[in-house]
């Protein structure tokens, strides 16, 4: 762990990625202390200061009801990261288990499980999440549910592909010969060999979950106001282009910075751990 971090910091590009990720995570955690106007995370109005261009003390300007954009972006990071962590901690175990089962058991189980996975992969991710969000009430919990539903198949695919290769390897045959149970072979022998690929994909996916979640709320199908959310901030500001550019540009850049950071780190991890794509 420590060694990995040291290697990451030695390459300027991945060091920059680590810096971006650290900045995003710290701004989310310390939003209460950094934000100049912490009360602006909620339903506050300050019509005396609405729609102001960036100037002190509003580093990134104010929104249409006079809230400080910089403060709201910090709190939006908090929601985005929370969403990413929750989605991945549910989707990854589900996908990994299905991938292991399909890859190791083979036969009918393989066919059925992989066709189900194909079904989920055949609906464009955003469209699937949109339709789930559409029938449910647009709350944060349901948003997590919708994104989770579209996320597990990718891990099923990844682990399935690795498992199919690994199950012919000597160590798996050896375990089988000495009478290890199927569950033991799958979870104690094969799974550890999938970990580098899974960790790499999870790093990249932290960024992509943030991206998809912001897309949902951009369409009005995600986190609802007054909760600060990067996607809905861009959507609210889009009608005021080009004059009030700060309403869209800063939340947009905030998404870009977070996703770019996770991508840089994930990319470096992939090369370091020799993970499969």
């Amino acid at each position: 762990m420590k060694r990995t971090l040291m290697i990451l910091l030695r390459n300027p590009l991945s060091a920059f990625g680590v810096l971006l990720v650290a900045t995003v995570v710290l701004s989310a955690l310390l939003a209460d202390f950094i934000a100049p106007f912490p009360e602006h995370r909620g339903a506050v109005v300050d019509f005396a200061n609405f729609n102001r261009a960036p100037e002190w003390p509003h580093l990134m300007g104010t929104d249409l009801v006079g809230r400080d954009l910089f403060s709201r972006i910090l709190y939006a990071y908090r929601i985005s990261l929370l969403l990413g962590v929750v989605v991945l901690s549910i989707a990854v175990p589900i996908g990994v288990t299905i991938g292991l089962l399909a890859g190791y058991l083979g036969g009918r189980a393989e066919y059925v499980l992989m066709r189900i996975t194909d079904v989920f992969l055949s609906i464009p991710p955003l469209v699937l999440a949109m339709s789930i969000m559409g029938v449910l009430e647009p709350t944060l919990t349901n948003g997590m549910l919708a994104v989770t539903a579209m996320w597990w198949p990718w891990y099923a695919r990844l682990v399935y592909n690795i498992t199919r290769g690994e199950k012919e390897e000597g160590y798996v045959l050896a375990a089988e010969v000495i009478g290890a149970s199927r569950a033991w072979v799958m979870f104690r022998e094969i799974l550890p060999n999938c970990v580098p690929s899974i960790v790499t994909k999870m790093t990249l996916d932290m960024g992509f979950v943030i991206l998809i979640a912001s897309s949902l709320s951009f369409l009005g199908l995600g986190v609802q106001p007054p909760t600060p959310d990067l996607g809905s901030m861009v959507a609210d500001g889009a009608t005021y282009l080009p004059d009030s550019w700060w309403l869209t540009v800063f939340p947009g850049l905030a998404i870009l910075i977070a996703v770019f950071g996770f991508n840089l780190v994930g990319d470096a991890l992939r090369e370091l751990l020799g993970a499969e794509q």
């Binding site: 991206l211 951009f218 861009v234 080009p242 550019w245 850049l253 998404i255 870009l256 996703v259 991508n263």
Partner: peptide
């Protein structure tokens, strides 16, 4: 590499807004 990584790092609506500002307004 940096440019293509940037490309995948923002949702299409962010690029849409940025392109619109740059090449339709500015």
């Amino acid at each position: 590499r940096v440019v293509s990584l940037l490309g995948v790092s923002a949702p299409a609506f962010v690029w849409a807004v940025i392109l619109m500002l740059l090449f339709a307004y500015f």
